[in-house]
């Protein structure tokens, strides 16, 4: 077995709250190979972003990695000192965030910010780093790059700011790019442009990408493999095709069914997932999805299933692990 670029093994991240700790990331394992694109899907609060921030070791003050291993290029990130981690962040792994409106520093020029990783890690001088920023701006499709590097973020549109963030992430040629909901805050037309850009960069530079989103359409168009998260756990994992064609976890099944179809002929009603997202402080016993699950059986209420192989993917579900298929729930 060859070494993966990134390998998470049973990673646990807890957030300390006044009423006790919650397990934001609960025994998450995943692998990522060079050049690959992995999608992480789930609702708000399912632990997607916390997983990403755990990899970057950029967790908020109250959160802490409490177990598991994160191996990146053969090194266990948990063993690294903060200084060593700083040397990896921004060079070998980069991250772009959900809201480009707030992710750029308002008081510094765009080119200064984009060239900063080069100044920090490659000890390039200011002039050369700004020149590099001009090139990067051209690569990510910002017109009039020479003028733009001298402007401030408030002079940019949302899409342009996200391009700026991507340019910043790419400045040092990282082997891993984590994009946390990179298009959520943008207009639909701009979303498509940003996704095209990410796809092109992945193709041209072979940067492995983790794409975090709640938009299944984005995953379908972008990702080789997908990981579905619910209540801090991975509930299903497989190639995008397998997971989309025959989901083996009722949560994935419900997510796919809830997408409204523009090509539907009749007057199909919207089919939301019943119930509401789980309260992370008071998770139910057994399978965490069982209160909302249309396929629920008695066992689901008592015992939590493991993530096991079901057909060609992994799923955390008693029903599918027992060999039943998810076609239509009983009595509906």
């Amino acid at each position: 077995m060859t070494a993966h670029l990134l390998e998470l093994e049973d990673v646990q991240t807890q957030i300390a709250l006044r009423r006790g700790a919650i397990r934001a990331v609960d025994h998450v394992s995943l692998t990522l190979d060079p050049g690959e694109t992995l999608g992480i899907v789930g609702e708000s609060g399912s632990g997607k972003s916390m997983t990403a921030l755990s990899i970057m070791r950029l967790l908020p003050r109250a959160a802490r990695i409490t177990g598991g291993r994160i191996r990146f290029k053969g090194r266990d990130l948990a063993d690294l000192s903060e200084d060593e981690m700083e040397a990896i962040r921004g060079t070998e792994m980069a991250m772009i965030f959900q809201d480009p409106m707030t992710s750029l520093n308002p008081v510094y020029r765009a080119g200064w910010q984009v060239g900063e990783p080069l100044r920090i890690h490659r000890h390039v001088d200011k002039r050369a780093s700004i020149a590099a920023a001009v090139d990067l701006f051209r690569k990510v499709g910002i017109p009039d790059a020479k003028t733009r590097v001298d402007q401030f973020p408030h002079q940019f549109s949302g899409g342009m700011r996200q391009r700026t963030m991507i340019a910043m992430g790419l400045s040092t040629g990282p082997s891993l790019l984590i994009a946390d909901e990179p298009t959520t805050a943008l207009d639909v037309t701009i979303q498509a442009q940003i996704l095209d850009l990410l796809r092109a960069l992945n193709r041209d530079y072979g940067t492995a990408t983790i794409l975090i989103t709640h938009n299944l359409g984005v995953v379908a168009g972008m990702c080789d493999r997908v990981l579905v998260m619910y209540a801090g756990r991975v509930v299903e994992q497989g190639t995008t095709e397998d997971v989309f064609v025959h989901p083996e976890h009722p949560y994935t099944w419900s997510l796919l069914r809830s997408i409204p179809r523009l090509d539907a002929t009749g007057h199909e009603p919207l089919r939301p997932i019943e119930g509401s997202p789980p309260d992370m402080g008071r998770l139910p016993a057994g399978c965490k999805f069982h209160p909302r699950c249309p396929f629920v059986i008695d066992r689901c209420r008592e015992e939590e299933p493991d993530l096991r192989e079901v057909r060609s993917q992994l799923a955390r579900c008693w029903v599918t692990q027992a060999g039943r298929s998810l076609d239509s729930p009983d009595g509906r």
């Binding site: 700083e86 040397a87 962040r89 921004g90 980069a94 965030f97 707030t102 520093n105 920090i120």
Partner: peptide
Amino acid sequence: NHDYIRTARAKGASWRRVVFVHALKN
């Protein structure tokens, strides 16, 4: 607590740089 501080950290800027360059001017 602003997002751009997290961005600066994600670039690999040290705490000192984050505080005195990115945060102080704001």
